[in-house]
Design a binder for these strands. Structure first.
Length: 229
DNA sequence: GCGACAG
DNA sequence: ATCTTGTCGC
C-alpha cells in the first residue's frame, strides 16, 4: 500500500457511507492481533476534547515501567466530520495522528480512547490508527459498542467480551466504584496482552494512566482556550 | 420493523 | 462528547 492509499484511509476522498465502509473493510483486512512489538518502554495515551467546532487532541507519553510522564503534545483542528456511531475514526483519527506526529519520542504502543477490533466491521478508532500508522495500539472505551459480556465482579476482574461468538476484548473492573471499562486490541497486540498492559497501567482510577493523562491534558487546554476568549 | 449505538 | 452543584455512599 502506497502513501496516497494510506492517506486516504484517514482523509477519505468521499464521505459517502459506502466509501467509508469500504475503507473500514480495508482496515480490517490489514489488522493483526498477534503481539508484534519487541520492546515496550514508552506507552502513549491519546484522547480528544471538543470546543465549539474544533477538536483538541492530546497525547501523553509515559515510561511503561515507572508511569512517569516523558512528553506531551497536542493539536487543535476544525471538526471535519460528525459523530456517527461506528464511524468515529473519520472524526478523530486524523487529529490523533497529527498529535502523535508532533512527538519527539514515538511510543512503542498507543492506548486510544475508543474501540479496537470490538467494532461491527473490526475497524474501531484504535484499529484504524494502528493500521494506518503501522503501530501497536489498544482501544479503551467506557461503553460497549457491540458484543456482550458478563459483569466483572471485583477490582481487576475481567470478563470476555464476545461478538459473533468470538472474543474481541475484555470488560474490566478497573476501580472500586466505577463501571467496568472495555479493552480490546487495536493492532499488533493480542487479546491477552492488551489486558495485561492495561492492568499494568492502572493506578486506582477508572482509566489507565496514559489515557487518563491524555484526557486531563485535553481538558486543561480546553479550559485555557475558554479563559482567554 | 424496532431498538442499540465508541466519542 | 457536552451542559453542571450538590450530594449519596464508602
Amino acid at each position: 500500500m502506497n502513501r496516497l492509499d494510506k492517506l486516504q484511509l484517514i482523509y477519505p476522498e468521499s464521505y459517502e457511507r459506502d466509501s467509508l465502509i469500504r475503507i473500514q473493510q480495508e482496515i480490517s483486512k490489514q489488522v493483526t492481533i498477534e503481539d508484534l512489538f519487541d520492546k515496550l518502554q514508552l506507552i502513549g495515551g491519546v484522547d480528544c476534547a471538543l470546543i465549539k467546532d474544533s477538536i483538541i487532541c492530546s497525547v501523553v507519553v509515559m515510561d511503561y515501567k515507572t508511569m512517569e510522564i516523558i512528553e506531551k503534545a497536542s493539536v487543535i483542528e476544525p471538526v471535519a466530520f460528525p459523530y456517527i456511531p461506528t464511524f468515529l475514526s473519520f472524526r478523530e483519527a486524523a487529529p490523533m495522528i497529527n498529535a502523535v506526529l508532533q512527538l519527539k519520542n514515538i511510543p512503542d504502543i498507543l492506548m486510544i480512547d475508543g474501540c479496537g477490533i470490538n467494532h461491527p466491521r473490526t475497524a474501531g478508532l484504535a484499529t484504524h490508527i494502528g493500521v494506518s500508522m503501522d503501530i501497536p495500539t489498544i482501544g479503551i472505551a467506557k461503553n460497549i459498542l457491540c458484543g456482550v459480556s458478563d459483569e466483572p465482579e471485583y477490582v481487576s476482574d475481567a470478563k470476555a467480551l464476545m461478538y459473533n461468538r468470538i472474543q474481541v476484548g475484555w470488560y474490566l473492573k478497573s476501580s472500586k466504584r466505577s463501571n467496568p471499562i472495555v479493552i480490546a486490541p487495536g493492532h499488533r497486540v493480542s487479546i491477552k496482552t492488551s489486558l495485561t498492559i492495561v492492568r499494568n497501567c492502572l493506578r486506582g482510577y477508572k482509566l489507565p494512566e496514559p489515557t487518563r493523562n491524555a484526557h486531563l491534558e485535553a481538558g486543561r487546554i480546553k479550559q485555557e482556550i475558554k479563559n482567554e476568549q
